[in-house]
C-alpha cells in the first residue's frame, strides 16, 4: 500500500482561484477562465512568464498556488520533488496555434517559441525551473479505466523512489466548442508520517484511492475533499 500526507492544494478554474489555506471553495465548472496573469500566484516579476502559452500559464499558476499552500514555494537548494500532471487535451490548443504559423509560407514562418510548448510536459519543466524541482516531470493521459493514475505515480515516486514530495493533479484547456470545464488543480503530497495521520492519502492494492479513509474516484472529487479536509 502506498501512503502520503496532504501538504497543500492550489487551483485555478472558471469558478475562481484558491489555495487550501484560503476560504475559497473548489469547483470545476464549464466557463471561461480569468486572464492567466502572473500576479494570480507570483508577487515577483517573472520575465519568462509572458512567453508561456496559456496551457503552461494555467499549470504553472496552479502548481505555484499548491506549493505556496504547502510552504514549499521558497527555496535555495534544488529539491527532489516530482511533478505528475493528468491531462486529457494536453497542449492541443497550443498545437493549433502553432500549426497556424506553419500553414502560411510553407512553414517558413513557423514559431519556434510556440513549438517549444507543443508538448504536454513542457509546463512541468517551467515549474521545475521556477521552484528548483529535480524529480520526475511527467504528463499523463489517464485512460477511462485508470482515473487518478497520476496520483498513483506521485505516491510511487514518494514511497519507491524516495522523493521529498510530489505535486500531483490535473491541467486541461479544452478546445473551443467543448463543454468540458477548463482548469487545473494540484495537491502537494509528502511522505507518510509515523502514527495517526489525519491527512493521509492512500493507494490501495487495487489502485483505488482514499483520502482520510474515504474513497475518491476522480480528480474533482479528490480536490474538493482535500479542500474540506484542509480546513478541519
Amino acid at each position: 500500500m502506498l501512503k502520503g500526507e496532504l501538504l497543500g492544494i492550489g487551483w485555478l478554474t472558471a469558478a475562481g482561484t484558491g489555495r487550501g489555506r484560503d476560504a475559497a471553495e473548489f469547483a470545476l465548472v464549464p466557463g471561461e477562465l480569468s486572464e492567466l496573469r502572473r500576479q494570480l500566484a507570483f508577487t515577483e516579476p517573472d520575465r519568462r512568464f509572458g512567453r508561456l502559452d496559456r496551457f503552461s500559464r494555467l499549470g504553472v499558476l496552479a502548481m505555484a498556488l499548491a506549493l505556496q499552500d504547502a510552504g514549499l514555494d521558497r527555496w535555495e537548494q534544488k529539491r527532489r520533488v516530482g511533478l505528475f500532471a493528468a491531462t486529457r487535451f494536453g497542449s492541443l490548443g497550443t498545437d493549433s496555434d502553432y500549426f497556424a504559423t506553419v500553414l502560411p509560407e510553407q512553414g517558413r514562418l513557423a514559431s519556434p517559441n510556440l513549438f517549444a510548448y507543443t508538448l504536454a510536459n513542457t509546463f512541468l519543466g517551467e515549474a521545475a525551473i521556477r521552484f528548483g524541482l529535480t524529480g520526475p516531470g511527467v504528463a499523463i493521459n489517464e485512460g477511462g479505466n485508470a482515473p487518478l493514475e497520476s496520483l498513483v505515480a506521485a505516491l510511487e515516486g514518494l514511497v519507491w523512489d524516495g522523493l521529498e514530495a510530489s505535486v500531483a493533479g490535473f491541467c486541461d484547456l479544452p478546445p473551443r466548442g467543448s463543454n468540458e470545464p477548463p482548469g487545473a488543480a494540484f495537491l502537494v503530497v509528502g511522505p507518510d508520517r509515523p502514527g495517526k495521520n489525519m491527512k493521509e492519502i492512500k493507494v490501495l492494492p487495487d489502485r483505488s484511492v482514499e483520502l482520510a479513509g474515504v474513497p475518491v474516484s476522480g480528480w474533482p472529487e479528490l480536490v474538493a475533499a482535500a479542500v474540506r479536509l484542509q480546513r478541519t
Partner: peptide, 15 residues
C-alpha cells in the same frame, strides 16, 4: 486497450 485486452492503460508524455 481494447485491441490488446490490457488493463489500466495510460500515456506517459515526457518528451
Amino acid at each position: 486497450q481494447r485491441r490488446l485486452g490490457v488493463v489500466g492503460g495510460v500515456n506517459i508524455n515526457a518528451a
